[in-house]
Measured scan of single mutants.
Amino acid sequence: MAAAAAAGAGPEMVRGQVFDVGPRYTNLSYIGEGAYGMVCSAYDNVNKVRVAIKKISPFEHQTYCQRTLREIKILLRFRHENIIGINDIIRAPTIEQMKDVYIVQDLMETDLYKLLKTQHLSNDHICYFLYQILRGLKYIHSANVLHRDLKPSNLLLNTTCDLKICDFGLARVADPDHDHTGFLTEYVATRWYRAPEIMLNSKGYTKSIDIWSVGCILAEMLSNRPIFPGKHYLDQLNHILGILGSPSQEDLNCIINLKARNYLLSLPHKNKVPWNRLFPNADSKALDLLDKMLTFNPHKRIEVEQALAHPYLEQYYDPSDEPIAEAPFKFDMELDDLPKEKLKELIFEETARFQPGYRS
């Protein structure tokens, strides 16, 4: 834990890192770190609560700039109880001085990944967590956004079992017609939660990839272990087919990539493993919904509104309290091709509203 900075004593240090967030945020305490930044909790002297502050230093890398800009653009436009918001952003007053960006968010005690390492969940908890994931996802999908990296560590939890989806750095506007060349190379989302079509096709992607990830998360809540822990690309596919069985001819016809289709045709026939054999203690309604989410063919996979209306979630289902976005989200430009200098300018502009004396 960093010592509390005395008023006016300059930035606090946390594990050798400068955290320049005073005077409003003090009493910093280390939480963890990701690929390009550290997260601390801090005391907000204005709202009198502890908050989470993520320090991001992305400006050396085009990919990190892209992810940072995506996350900020999306989260500043989203407003939903099951999606983490941005409360404040701290950065230098000029673009030349801006080396880091500090993002202030609600402090959540833990995440689903940490929880599943230590606790076996009751059916009631599984049901409530799944409902909140789908409630947040309904809003995301209504904005025409794909999260693309749903996994237990991106689901934040607090002691009252509130759940918030975080990390929109890989999110995209849904565009089933656009052929994202190089899709697989830039697709760094965790393999275990990846839909089979991501490994088999490169053309376009749809909201059904997020539903697949939610199915993987439900299976993990039922058993405290990942359902498809593939060691590499082909191993991942083999794990999936080992449980779902061989795809039907109709399902194979959806695979545009001939090499991928021929690979699947070359494999020995596998039978589907019954879900109640894998999860003998699970609620039968939970397994019915799991089956509809972990469907090989993305066109037959359940959609988020149908999933919310499934009998497993009937005690929570309330369409009048499951809000959607006001308007579909649009990125003005494809960020993939922009140089990091341009992305830095866009991050600077996007964060201006939090600067003292800002006038829109």
Rank of each mutant, 00 (worst) to 15 (best):
W212P: 10
D88S: 00
A9S: 12
I217T: 03
R301W: 00
D124L: 06
I90V: 12
L287T: 09
G16P: 14
L116F: 06
V214N: 06
D179T: 10
E109N: 07
N271P: 02
S320V: 08
F59R: 15
A282D: 14
S153Q: 04
L241H: 05
E33F: 04
N87S: 00
A352G: 03
D179Y: 15
V173W: 03
C65V: 13
I255K: 05
Y113N: 15
G32T: 04
P247M: 02
L76F: 01
K114H: 07
M13H: 09
L150M: 14
K55P: 13
A35K: 14
T63I: 12
P229M: 06
V14M: 08
E314G: 00
A282P: 08
Y139I: 07
N201H: 08
E350S: 02
L289D: 01
C40A: 07
I56F: 15
I83K: 02
Q105P: 00
S122P: 04
A282I: 03
N224V: 07
T159S: 15
Y187N: 14
E349G: 07
G22S: 00
P23Q: 02
A282T: 13
E220T: 07
L107K: 01
T181R: 10
K55H: 13
Y30C: 08
L155A: 04
E96G: 00
I84T: 00
A219D: 04
L222I: 09
L289F: 03
L338A: 07
D210G: 00
S246P: 00
C127I: 11
G32S: 14
N27K: 14
R15D: 10
I56R: 13
L200T: 04
V145H: 03
L134V: 13
A282H: 01
L234I: 07
S153Y: 03
F59D: 09
K54E: 14
H120V: 06
A189K: 01
R148T: 07
I240P: 04
R359L: 11
I95N: 15
K207L: 10
E350C: 01
V145C: 09
D20P: 04
Q236T: 00
F331P: 04
A92V: 10
I133P: 01
Y64P: 15
E314Y: 03
N297S: 09
E326S: 03
L121K: 03
V273I: 01
I198V: 11
A307I: 00
E186Y: 08
I198F: 15
A174H: 11
V14F: 14
V104P: 08
D100C: 12
Y263H: 00
S320D: 05
P58G: 15
A195M: 01
A195P: 10
S360C: 10
S29Q: 10
A352R: 11
E109Q: 02
Y64H: 15
F59E: 07
L278T: 08
K54W: 03
G182D: 00
E305A: 13
N87A: 01
L335P: 01
E96R: 09
M333V: 04
K117T: 09
V51E: 13
F329Q: 08
V304M: 10
A307M: 08
A260N: 02
V104R: 01
T295V: 03
S29N: 11
G242W: 00
S248Y: 14
G357E: 12
H310F: 00
I209R: 08
E326Y: 03
Q355F: 02
A143S: 12
N82C: 05
G85R: 11
K270M: 13
P58D: 13
P323N: 04
L218N: 03
I198Q: 04
L290C: 10
T351A: 12
A309I: 11
I56H: 14
D251R: 09
P323M: 04
L264M: 15
T190Q: 01
L121F: 04
R301N: 02
F329N: 09
T26I: 15
R91K: 00
E250G: 09
C216F: 13
S208L: 06
I126S: 11
Y312L: 12
I83D: 00
I89D: 02
Y193Q: 06
R277E: 13
A3W: 07
N257S: 12
A9R: 11
A219C: 07
A35Q: 13
M13L: 15
P11S: 14
C161M: 05
I324G: 08
T110Q: 03
P93Y: 03
R261D: 03
S213E: 09
M108V: 00
V51S: 11
H61G: 10
L156S: 12
L252G: 08
L121P: 05
E186D: 12
Q315K: 13
S284T: 14
E109F: 08
P23D: 06
E81T: 00
Y312A: 10
N45T: 13
R225G: 05
L289A: 06
V214G: 12
S208I: 04
F129E: 01
M13F: 04
S202T: 12
C216K: 04
E349K: 13
I302C: 05
Y131S: 05
K73S: 08
N45I: 14
L294H: 03
G136W: 14
L308Y: 02
Y113D: 03
L244H: 11
R225I: 06
T181G: 06
L218E: 09
H80I: 04
R50Q: 13
E341W: 00
I209Q: 11
N281Q: 10
D167K: 01
E322Q: 04
L234K: 03
E71L: 06
D210R: 10
F329I: 15
L290F: 03
D235R: 08
V101M: 15
K292E: 09
Y43I: 06
E341C: 05
K207Y: 06
N276Y: 13
A2C: 06
S202H: 10
P152M: 06
L156A: 14
Q132F: 02
G357D: 15
E322S: 01
I209A: 08
L313N: 01
Q306C: 03
E197G: 00
P311N: 03
I302V: 05
I227Y: 02
P319T: 14
D44A: 13
D124G: 01
K164F: 00
M221S: 05
H80S: 04
G85L: 01
S122M: 05
I86L: 08
E322W: 04
P176A: 12
H310Q: 13
T68I: 15
I255C: 11
R194E: 12
R24T: 05
P93S: 12
I227S: 11
E220C: 04
N297Q: 08
R191T: 06
P176T: 15
Q119I: 09
R194C: 12
F348K: 09
L75A: 11
S142G: 02
E326W: 05
I209H: 10
D332I: 09
I74C: 12
I256W: 11
L267C: 02
I74A: 05
Y113P: 03
S57C: 11
L137I: 02
I89P: 00
M13N: 12
D283V: 13
L112Q: 14
R15Y: 02
Y43D: 13
L157N: 07
Y312H: 00
V18H: 14
K300W: 10
C254F: 12
A42T: 14
H232Y: 09
K272G: 08
R15N: 06
T351P: 12
G215R: 12
S213Y: 07
P23H: 14
R172Y: 01
V46H: 12
L156T: 01
G34T: 01
P152L: 11
E96M: 01
G37F: 00
I86C: 05
A195D: 15
A42M: 04
F348A: 07
N45Y: 14
T160M: 03
A171G: 04
D177H: 10
P274C: 08
K285V: 07
E334I: 00
E341A: 05
Y358C: 12
A189P: 09
N87E: 06
A52C: 13
T110A: 10
V18T: 01
A4D: 11
Q66F: 09
T190N: 10
N297T: 15
A189R: 10
L134C: 02
Y233H: 15
Q355N: 07
E60Y: 12
Y193C: 04
D318E: 14
V14L: 12
R24L: 13
I302P: 11
R135P: 03
G22F: 09
I255M: 07
K164G: 09
D44W: 08
E322Y: 00
E220G: 00
F228G: 00
G8A: 11
N82T: 10
L313F: 10
N82I: 15
G245R: 06
M38T: 11
L163P: 09
Q66T: 10
L278M: 12
L115Q: 14
R77Y: 01
Y358W: 06
I302Q: 01
P339V: 10
Q132M: 06
I31D: 15
S41Q: 03
